[in-house]
Write a protein that binds this DNA or RNA. Structure first.
Length: 376
RNA sequence: GGGGAGAUACCAAAGCGGCCAACUGGGGCAGACUGUAAAUCUGCUGACUUUCGUCUUCGUAGGUUCGAAUCCUGCUCUCCCCA
């Protein structure tokens, strides 16, 4: 994977670029829909490609390893062919599950012992086998196996955890270099900068990861409970250290406002479950602000979901109808909301890119943030 | 005509002398959700009050009792069975 940095905004750190993968180009800034088990919940690939205009999606090592398992994925010819997604795929390493499934795991130097959330069976993830699994999946971008500590972790724990993440990173790259792609297309490996909310640890981490001359770098361990301002501060600090000519990926973030703030600080890639999960739960992100579609006030509002009309559902269905479907528990409601939210996120990324290229980002962004913060 | 059962908040349904403004569902209203164990979870849902609390409620009219949704009597209505 190569990255062309096309333009950097003159007054902010915002960047526009293109990533070239063996599964096609990806313009940045980019939002990548999360398709944990090989499915972006509630959305057809066709709509993701042709309506949402997504160019890259995520899968998850932990989930795909447990089900359907690497054997099936290998028989299928990799995840791309298994789920029939022709664009690039990025897989998270399972590091986040080490955090989110904290109750059923045990961390050691070797790796992470954990119990399956599906059947309780015991498994071990190591930096080596997590790379192997991602080779079996065939992700265009593989993520290093890391520990993602909670947002309120104390310094001592954060420092210890960072040491472990760094040692694991060395093992990830060793395994990465000792193995080959299985399906003929190139696979990148992105290190993950950790360090919680401690500036010196973040800086240390951002410096450490560069020794691997990776094709891109990720910032992890943010939006895990710390205030947004602290997150922005960490991003700023890390991006000041990371190389300019590689894409920066802010993992798991976030709200539309988070995205714009991060873009302003030089982030190129994002993923988040928010558009799909919150969509399923009745929340719409729109160009005018946030809509809780279950609210009484929408009962007779027959206007489009979003005047920006970023998806076909926006002009096909009204707020009143979507409210009705949502309250009725219809699965179509979840599909419509998910599709809209994803389309809105990618629309927002295209807008940001356009503004960066035209040199108007710094004027456009604050007004947009103000709009996106509104609760309608 | 005779016999039996029952009437509880928006709906359904517990409660059967004080811990009851009243369990629990549903419905309704509102909130949460950030590298997906989430089509999930959390509140509120008689009135007034920010809280404490006060007031009015369990078909209806009386009665017993220190105290009643709960016990007694009349009335109204509903359902079931037999003729």
């Amino acid at each position: 994977m190569t990255f062309d940095l096309i333009h950097t905004d003159s007054s902010t750190k915002a960047r526009a670029g293109i990533m070239h993968t063996d599964h096609g180009p990806v313009q940045t800034p980019v939002f990548m829909p999360v398709g944990t088990v090989g499915s972006v919940k509630g959305v057809f690939h066709r709509d993701l490609r042709d309506d949402v205009l997504s160019r890259i999606i995520l899968g998850n090592t932990y989930h795909l390893y447990l089900r359907p398992g690497t054997e099936i994925l290998e028989q299928a010819g990799g995840l791309h062919r298994f789920c029939n997604w022709e664009g690039p795929i990025l897989t998270d390493s399972g590091g986040f599950q080490v955090f989110s499934l904290a109750d059923c795991r045990k961390l050691t130097e070797e790796g992470c012992k954990f119990r399956s959330h599906i059947d309780g069976s015991s498994h071990l993830f190591t930096p080596e086998n997590v790379i192997d699994i991602q080779r079996s999946i065939g992700a265009d971008i593989m993520m290093a196996f890391d520990e993602c500590p909670p947002g309120d972790a104390e310094y001592k724990y954060a420092e210890k955890s960072l040491g472990l993440t760094h040692r694991w990173l060395e093992r990830c790259f060793k395994q990465y270099r000792a193995t080959e792609p299985r399906y003929g297309h190139h696979q990148s490996l992105f290190p993950i900068v950790q360090g919680c909310t401690y500036g010196d640890l973040r800086r240390r981490s951002a410096e450490f990861v560069q020794q691997f001359d990776a094709e891109g770098y990720a910032i992890g361990g943010l939006a895990v409970g710390e205030p947004a301002e602290v997150m922005y501060e960490m991003i700023e600090l890390v991006n000041a250290v990371l190389p300019e000519d590689r894409p920066r990926y802010l993992m798991g973030v976030g709200t539309p406002v988070n995205l714009l703030e991060a873009i302003e600080r030089g982030v190129d890639m994002f993923d988040c479950v928010m558009p799909t999960r919150n969509g399923r739960n009745g929340m719409l992100f729109t160009s005018e602000g946030i809509v809780n579609i279950r609210n009484l006030k929408w009962r007779n509002d027959f206007s489009p979901l979003d005047p920006a009309l970023c998806s076909f559902v926006d002009s096909t269905y009204t707020k009143a109808y979507l409210r009705h479907l949502t309250l009725a528990g219809e699965m179509l409601a979840a599909q419509i909301a998910s599709l809209h939210n994803l389309a809105f996120y990618t629309w927002l990324m295209r807008q940001a890119r356009e503004q960066i290229l035209q040199g108007t980002f710094s004027a456009w962004k604050p007004a947009m943030v103000e709009k996106l913060s509104r609760r309608l």
